[in-house]
Amino acid sequence: MATLLYLESLSDCFASWRKEGLTVLAPVGEGALSGFREVERAEEANFDLLITRTTLKELFFPRTEPMLGYRIGKREIETEEFMPPVEGRIIFGARACDSAAMAIDDALFDWDYHDEYWFRRRESSVVFTIACREPDEFCMCTSLGLSPDSAKGSDVLLRPLEAGNGWQVEPVTDRGHKALSSIEQHLREGSGATAAPAEVPVKFDLEACRSWLANKENFESPFWREISERCIGCGSCTYLCPTCHCFDIQDEGDTYQGIRRKNWDSCSFQLFTMHTSGHNPRATQGARWRQRIMHKFNYYGGKFDVDSCTGCGRCTRECPVDMGVTETLQTIAAKQKQSERT
């Protein structure tokens, strides 16, 4: 016997949570307009989407957020600290790749500094992940050691029923258990057959990639220039990436009053590493693309023992010039295998 949640009861579940003061967010919209937004009823959500264009990370690490207000007077300096609200949220219908990214980024945001902005939102949110039934040609979670039904970073895992009328419910964390207890009256015990998770082909050998990247001789390889020759240096791949987490701190206002904000930033930008002197240690797009790949598949693993990629495929799916992590890693894996043979 398993716990089942039928689609027809979902609006009642949303109502129960909302009654407790929780905000319910779900994937809505189509294509480029899709993302996670607040919903009241189940019909507003779009569970047919393979993946939203913008990622789950926006709900924890917004594009821009105020940190501090300041006003310098004649006699005193006034400051005001802005902290995100701790209102509870249910995020219903995330994908395994997006949820896993949250767990990956937890390590970074709790490393040399405990990032309150991130963790306040993490601790007040319950993530319900729905296992995928169908991949598209860009999906590559299995190449990163994950799967379409991975529970990493999720509080509750939902497996779609074969009939398409609901999900089998598997609580993962205490937060998940607690959220489920609020909707207990809408859950059923049963034995509905669950749909097989999506079959996502493995696209590259990650171990081979790690070895090639760890070889210091390859840092100056002409490969970096060749693979990124057509890169136009926009931030599309980094901003649509569920794990990319770099930010910039900007003061908006003037010397006497203003707001200090935390804004997304991207290693693809020329300005990202520009020194005041005008010298840029990553002067070319090839050096910037190398940084992105090295950060994800070498440095991050070295520090936190996990790669900073979940295989969602957005970088390739949305690149204006048809680049992305997949092709780069496929080429790197082939290079490593070739060097092992010779």
Partner: peptide
């Protein structure tokens, strides 16, 4: 409101 300031428009 959807703009994420990725500057893809400028770069392209």
């Amino acid at each position: 409101s959807r703009c994420i300031k990725c500057y893809a428009c400028r770069q392209a």
